[in-house]
Design a protein around this nucleic acid. Structure first.
Length: 951
DNA sequence: GCCAGTACGTA
DNA sequence: CGTACGTACTGGCC
């Protein structure tokens, strides 16, 4: 074994990849005019490109099987019978793939009498011996026997892109045997894909059990008589087959290939050959561009991405995780005493001033409190984090960690109860001296270990969001790349959870990645802390975002109870309606077109039926959206076929959408508790709003009766008697009244009259009791449009009036509420000047596009800049209300709990006998969240489901 | 298998 | 040609 080279060799199972590509892509969409299938070729190029981009290998070789049997067929005639039966359409593409590889400058290898697997085994062994880190891309599990500390098998999952990195540890975790024992296991189990029978009734589990009991397949065979039961009989009956299997699945590692690993370079494409081939295959320019980027010097043996990063940081070259950060030293905690000793030994590194630790949040209207700073303290705090699956309702934790800059205590789950107690005590005492990344996710993970944690001092996820609300990082690595400009060359982290390592790494790898995470969090805090301070935003984090995280954690953990039978009934009903509408539409259309395909609809409507299209989509085609269909429907009364079709289509659109919404809710309902646990995203919406995903419970239908019915499946759970819904009326308009100081608008709110009627009466100069329905709705639309930067065109469109009329309305409106007009103008002007907008509580959003020379982009930025402080202030207010409400419920010691937030509405699950008390608590929390020049109006309703709780 | 486009639900 | 979101589906890719 020579010195490690720090270089990566990628060995590809050509047949496996070609098969995968062929079956992943529909062949009928990938053929040349002459009828040559190209799906496998195109897919091969695409998938190989993906892997190269992700793994950035320095060397590359592709192995293929050769026609004509191998020594295996002589032993086992039916061997790989299934593979030989590959469709003609795939077989004809193999030479094309090889031609492509040659043109791309990639070496491929085949050898008479051997399989691709043997070539792979040989290359991996050569790579291993030469000190390379070798990656084997193969969908064939026989390759698992090659895995060792320097050989990793990339095994495609359901989606090709999420390749499992099979390491010795992950093989053991999955199969309970070592890579070297894997062929024994496979021999016992058999391999359906290769047409190899195993012992009937014996799968991975039994095979592993025997191997671990006897040590090896040979030993099992020797002791076959001792194996009891039906499985033992089966084993004895098939023992020759198993022995044969084992001979066949052993890969040959010393085939004479006549190549050196050093020669397996790539990076120079034969452009003329590629042009010729791609022309022949009718591949487009996009394919060529992408392939050229990857295969033409995109990755060269010298100066790879990680090499450059390591050189820059001066760190150890062989460390792929290295990003120039000093990682803390690892201490794996085994006992409570050890943890406590560790804490005491490192306490001197912690220095957080008392004014931060003891900072009270007494009153959200007290501006004097908002000057709190986190200063240098962020660099002298404990880092607390955890790894695992943080999805609400199904969270589980793999490990927790507490760290200083120099040292990390890692506590693996499950933890002993004494360790748990020690950690709990630590968190209770030190939470205000900690920094975290994603407090809400951390709470889910800690909860899974029976732990809790009061507010930390600083959250780098929230900090990044406050600093740049338009940037969204899916995980810690992305945040690090963005804010720290460090590049971590490693498998990407999943979005869900703080970090969810799957079973693909050794324990050492795992802990190295963990301390790297800890270093990243610390570095993020040190970078973001001063930014937050400079903008005076620490109060926002400390008094709003962090407490909201805690409330949201509770809401997600609780979830919303679902009446499943009502839901499935509804699904069946909508499905039947949609089906009926579809049948009818098909009859009018004269064919079974896909009603969910805009493209097919365009053809039927605008070509076959010759209807006059209205609007275009941004792509230039004619829109088939509901508004357009409605229009066509009205104007097609004299065309019975079109009218009938459009009517049916509109009905199908509506019912099918509802069916889909209901089905999504069914799928999202937790089996265990019959509840839906959504995730509220706190760092996604650029204005400061929350969003809801997986599923989105903030867009459950509410506008018409049929859709609103869906709300009735949200019911109180066991131990609760009702749901309450409380919402703010016209918050955004009230904020505009306050911030603009417009006396007329303020008076409109203070009067307590029907707001829109009152405003209409002022705008039109007629008494309130003479306002017509039209006047009221026009003024209402105008009022709401204000905060969106509505154009007169848009207003006219929405109200179905002439643009002149809309213009007149707007002028009258602004004549009446002059200061509102001035205020809205000032918002844009200030944003242009400062580069950002600000909410009441100092939440910022930057608008570089205000200086764009592109008019469209600039106009859009102006509208967004107009809206951001208004929508954002409303979001701030609701967040404060939620914190106050959560606190009030806690302090009252009631069982009722907040379960949903829909921007201006809270849904509360009410415990028996608490309805009056809780209504008042929530109403008070919402009404007095802030003190504005106008009152905040909250209306509440209670009912036995969400729909009935409406008011 | 992956991505962009279209459509549509909410505040 | 009104802001802010999340999700489902189709069809191009060739």
């Amino acid at each position: 074994m020579t010195e490690p080279t720090n270089e990566t060799l990628l060995v590809v199972d050509g047949h496996s990849l070609a098969f995968r590509a062929f079956y992943a892509l529909p062949v009928e969409n990938f053929s040349t005019a002459a009828g040559q299938a190209t799906n496998a070729v195109w897919g091969f190029a695409t998938m190989l490109s993906q892997v190269i981009e992700a793994e950035k290998p320095d060397h590359l070789g592709v192995a293929f099987d050769m026609k004509g049997g191998t020594f295996r067929n002589d032993m086992l005639p039916q061997y790989k019978g299934t593979r030989e039966a590959a469709p003609e359409e795939l077989l004809t593409q193999l030479p094309l793939i090889q031609r492509m590889l040659k043109a791309l400058g990639v070496t491929y290898i085949e050898k008479q009498g051997y399989e691709g697997d043997d070539i792979i085994a040989t290359l991996a062994t050569m790579g291993d011996d030469a000190g390379y880190h070798t990656l084997v891309l193969s969908g064939d599990r026989d390759a698992f026997q090659l895995v060792d500390d320097n050989v990793t098998v990339l095994y495609p999952g359901h989606h090709f892109k999420d390749l499992k990195h099979m390491t010795p540890q992950s093989i053991v975790d999955k199969y309970k045997v070592t890579p070297a024992q894997y062929p024994d296991l496979a021999a016992l189990r058999g391999e359906t894909a290769d047409n190899i029978p195993g012992v009937p009734g014996v799968g991975d589990g039994y095979a592993a059990k025997w191997i671990n009991q006897y040590g090896s397949l040979d030993a099992i065979c020797e002791h076959a008589d001792e194996v009891t039961g039906k499985k033992g009989e089966a084993l004895r009956a098939n023992i020759d087959q198993v022995k044969l299997n084992r001979k066949v699945n052993a890969l040959v590692r010393d085939v004479d290939l006549g190549v050196d690993i050093e020669d397996l370079t790539f990076g120079s494409v034969d452009v003329a050959q590629i042009d010729a081939l791609f022309k022949e295959l009718e591949f487009g320019p996009r394919t060529k561009t992408r392939v050229m980027k990857i295969f033409n010097g995109g990755v060269s043996p010298a100066g790879t991405a990680q090499g450059a990063a390591a050189a820059q940081s001066g760190g150890p070259a062989e460390d792929k995780l290295d990003s120039g950060l000093d990682t803390p030293k690892i201490t794996v905690i085994e006992s409570a005493a050890q943890f406590e000793q560790w804490v005491e030994a490192h306490r001197h590194e912690i220095n957080v001033p008392d004014d931060i630790v003891d900072f009270p949040v007494s009153d959200y209207s007290n501006e004097a409190e908002r000057h709190i700073m986190c200063g240098d303290a962020v660099g002298h705090a404990w880092t607390v984090t955890a790894w695992g699956d943080a999805r609400p309702g199904r969270a589980h934790v793999q490990a927790c960690a507490v760290a200083t800059a120099s040292s990390a205590a890692i506590i693996e789950a499950p933890m002993a109860s004494s360790v748990q107690t020690a950690l709990d005590r630590f968190l209770k005492a030190e939470h205000f001296r900690t920094i975290v990344h994603g407090y809400k996710e951390l709470l889910h993970l800690l909860s899974a270990a029976g732990l809790g944690m009061a507010l930390p001092m600083f959250d780098t996820k929230l900090g990044g969001y406050l600093a740049q609300p338009d940037f969204h990082a899916d995980n810690l690595n992305q945040a690090a790349e963005h804010f720290l400009d460090i590049h971590v060359v490693d498998a990407e982290q999943p979005a869900q959870g703080v970090l969810d390592f799957d079973d693909e790494h050794t324990e050492e790898d795992l802990n190295e990645r963990r301390v790297h995470d800890l270093a990243v969090i610390r570095e993020l805090a040190v970078t973001l802390g001063p930014v937050i301070d400079e903008r005076r935003q620490y109060w926002l984090m400390r008094a709003i975002e962090l407490p909201v995280s805690r409330v949201l954690h509770g809401m997600e953990q609780s979830g919303a109870k679902i009446d499943r039978s009502r839901l499935t009934d509804m699904r069946d009903r909508f499905a039947a309606d949609a089906r009926q509408a579809q049948e009818m539409a098909w009859q009018y259309a004269g064919g079974e077109i896909n009603l969910q395909s805009p493209k097919q609809l365009q053809k039927v409507l605008f070509v076959d039926m010759g209807l006059k299209p209205t609007k275009r989509t941004k792509n230039g085609s004619y829109t088939t959206n509901a508004a357009a269909l409605q229009n066509l429907y009205i104007h097609s009364v004299d065309n019975e076929q079109a009218n009938g079709f459009l009517g049916a289509l509109l009905r199908h659109r509506e019912t099918n959408k509802l069916k889909q919404i209901v089905q999504t809710l069914i799928d999202a309902t937790n089996k265990a508790d019959e509840r839906i646990h959504t995730t509220f995203e706190q760092t996604v919406a650029a204005t400061g709003r929350l969003s809801s995903v997986d599923p989105n419970l903030q867009n459950i239908p509410n506008r018409n009766a049929v859709g609103r019915e869906i709300r009735s499946v949200f019911v109180p759970g066991e131990g609760y008697e009702a749901l309450m819904s409380c919402d703010y009326s016209q918050v955004e308009l009230r904020i505009m009244a306050d911030l603009s100081g417009d006396e007329a608008l303020i008076e409109a709110f203070r009067s307590g009259a029907d707001f829109h009627k009152y405003v209409a009466s002022m705008v039109y100069g007629v008494p309130v009791d003479q306002i017509t329905g039209d006047q009221r709705s026009h003024v209402k639309a105008m009022s709401y449009g204000l905060a969106y930067g509505l154009s007169t065109y848009g207003l006219a469109q929405q109200l179905n009036i002439a643009q002149r009329e809309a213009e007149a309305l707007k002028n009258r409106y602004f004549d009446t509420f002059g200061k509102v007009h001035d205020y809205l103008e000032s918002l844009v002007a200030t944003a242009r000047e400062k580069g950002y907008t600000e909410t009441i509580f100092g939440r910022r959003r930057y608008f570089p596009a205000l200086r764009s020379t592109n008019r469209m982009a600039r106009d859009a930025a102006e509208r967004a800049a107009l809206n951001a402080p208004i929508q954002g202030s409303a979001a701030d207010i609701m967040k404060i209300a939620m914190i106050r409400a959560g606190q009030a419920l806690d302090e009252a010691g009631v069982k009722s709990r907040i379960i949903l937030q829909i921007h201006d509405e809270l849904v509360v699950e009410i415990a028996p006998g608490e309805s009056e008390q809780v209504t008042e608590l929530i109403r008070n929390a919402m009404e007095h969240a802030v003190d504005l020049a106008v009152p905040l109006d909250v209306s509440c309703g209670i009912g036995s489901d969400w729909q009935l709780a409406a008011h």
